[in-house]
Design a binder for these strands. Structure first.
Lengths: 351, 351
DNA sequence: CACTGTCTCTTTACCGATAAAGACTTGACC
DNA sequence: GGTCAAGTCTTTATCGGTAAAGAGACAGTG
């Protein structure tokens, strides 16, 4: 016996294939009696419901949306901010019944997920806008939402006021009286170790935060020393901090690209016999749950990741509906606030 | 102008549709010259490659695998162990070009992802085997792999020696001389607060670990006090520890279901004026990166999550290939080792 | 009684590809 | 010159559904 399809059931029950289809997909189109009979026969035959692939073709929609993440995916999963965001997205999408497909930018074996996976729309999170994967998504003309990326014309975007937040963080240090400021950041591509602002090729968020820091530091006549590591974990922060602190004139305060890096910076300071914040002020970014739990509690810039996920999911579903209805609608560019949270890891420098 | 399909291109170039299909999917089937011409025309027409949905139907495979996660997805994303596992899976799958679709067990709006999303196989991670979602996957007869679940006949499974690991952890405490032992665990369903072993309905992993602990405690005549919280974050561990420590005869050692919980337990101990390990020994589970960074470094049970992800992905791709080839093959049940890592958070009780 | 709906189900017409087998050229080799 | 194999394309037959319009029956209405 071959595979059980609508036709198999239709023949068995003695109705048309379409009626069986309706029994599954549009119950209001037939009498409850007949429907029950059809369902019973289907069950008896071991039918598992309309084939998703066939349905996707016929309906023109697949019931899944994609999410494109730059890094090697496992990179994204190692990053607490990214996973929290993914969780928020997933939660937001669950009630819609849409599946969420993880797309790697990996172009292995000639298979490009961004081109070859069926989906009704996609989120693009912190990706290189020039990458082939993004290009394919764009070409497919499917509803897209850009998150934490340089906003593009015609594509809805969700961003955070990274620059303003970073500016506030740096200004906070300036106001406390710091004049020797270090920056700890990360990024796989590009130079590592002690770098200058020109060496930063870290994508939109990275450059925005750097700009924000400089917005406050430069007018105050402060030019920061920057240490840059490939990864963004605490261990990397530790290494970067050692580099900064071993300079002839070590900084009295450090601005970090993330709370995770900040954690390592604090550890390095402690191990170097420095007290935080008396000898070294440390500022993080993101306000991850760990920030408040740190000793001392970390001064950081808060972004509401759940709100970001919510906004992104909402923008996508909206764009998808608009696309289905044929109502293009304008592409909104949303910018969520970032707020400086002053805790106990910052203090005036002691002279 | 309507949509561009293979036929559009075929007409334009003056060849059959099949030849155009081959130009995209089987380059060796036609002359390079013609292929280039076809590709050029396709590009000119704005064709983005064979429609994934149509291809899925025709080929009988969709190029994506699903992963079913019990909790509300966001729950899974909040759990470091789960996200690390997901990352490992994603990394393992990336080179194969397969997409990874997150499936929620959520049956919202009549849409059941496990039934309605096109995929070639699926991973089932720490799910209730009785859930409808799992049931649908089973009925679809697609290649499946169970991870951290009660192994089922005919379904490949990947598990960890949780019971043995837990036994080793508990034995370690017994060997150190502890006789008053607490357990801190978590689980949304069921009773919370101080519970007895019978109240534990925490799925396979939870029950395995409990069994393992009891395997060592019971023969030593020790019956543990158990505190159970809905969630598995450090904050929950903190609450649970407060409960345990406020008992008339507080434990001298605590076994935790995870490192995250253990983190909270240590905090609670410190806040209660107890030294770890002098006044309270704490043992975690999983050996997350944070465990080694803790103060004091945490004694815990190590499981290799990357190996687990690797094994799961391998088992799935293997099952998928076997299914495609029509070679059912036996369903292997793999069990990865768990190893006790003794660090500085455990010591003999002081009398 | 004819007219108009409303229910139910059926018909017709795709959705956009792929697999497998067939047909036509060409060149090599005996 | 005839035969065979390889290389290029074309033909034929599905893949498993869904949308939209059509058709027959039955009831309510003026």
């Amino acid at each position: 016996m071959g595979r059980v399809t609508l036709q198999t059931i239709a023949d068995r029950v003695g109705v048309s294939r379409m009626t069986v289809s309706n029994a599954f997909s549009r119950p209001d189109q037939l009498s409850p009696t007949l429907r029950d009979r059809i369902l019973a026969v289907a069950d008896e035959l071991g039918y598992v419901g309309p084939d998703p692939a066939a349905r996707a073709l016929a309906r023109g929609s697949s019931g899944a949306v994609g999410i494109l993440l730059t890094e090697s995916l496992s990179g994204a999963f190692a990053d607490e901010v990214a996973t929290t965001f993914l969780g928020a997205i997933a939660d937001e999408l669950a009630p819609t019944g849409l599946g969420l497909t993880l797309l790697s930018t990996d172009t292995a074996g000639g298979v490009v997920p961004a081109r070859d996976v069926a989906m009704d729309g996609a989120l693009v999170y912190s990706c290189d806008p020039e990458s082939t994967a993004v290009d394919w998504l764009l070409r497919r003309k499917m509803p897209l939402v850009f998150i934490d990326q340089v906003p593009a014309d015609g594509v809805p975007a969700v961003n955070v006021a990274d620059r303003a937040g970073a500016r506030a963080a740096a200004q906070h240090l300036i106001d406390l009286g710091h004049r020797r400021v270090g920056i700890v950041t990360s990024g796989v591509r590009g130079r590592h170790g002690m770098v200058s602002p020109g060496d930063m090729i870290d994508g939109y968020v990275g450059s925005q935060r750097l700009s924000g820091w400089l917005d406050a530091l430069t007018p105050a006549g402060v030019s920061p020393t920057i240490a840059r590591e490939p990864h963004g974990d605490p261990e990397s922060g530790y290494q970067a901090a050692r580099l900064l602190l071993s300079a002839p004139e070590p900084p009295t305060a450090v601005l970090c690209f993330s709370d995770a890096l900040a954690q390592g910076v604090v550890s390095a300071a402690v191990d170097a016999g420095l007290r935080v914040p008396e000898d070294l002020s440390v500022v993080g970014f993101d306000d991850s749950p760990a920030a408040a739990r740190m000793r001392p509690p970390l001064t950081t810039v808060r972004q509401d990741i759940h709100a970001k996920g919510h906004a992104a999911a909402a923008a996508l579903t909206q764009a998808m509906e608009a696309a289905k209805a044929g109502t293009p609608g304008p592409a909104e560019h949303l910018c969520l606030p970032a707020e400086l949270i002053v805790r106990a890891s910052t203090a005036p420098p002691h002279v």
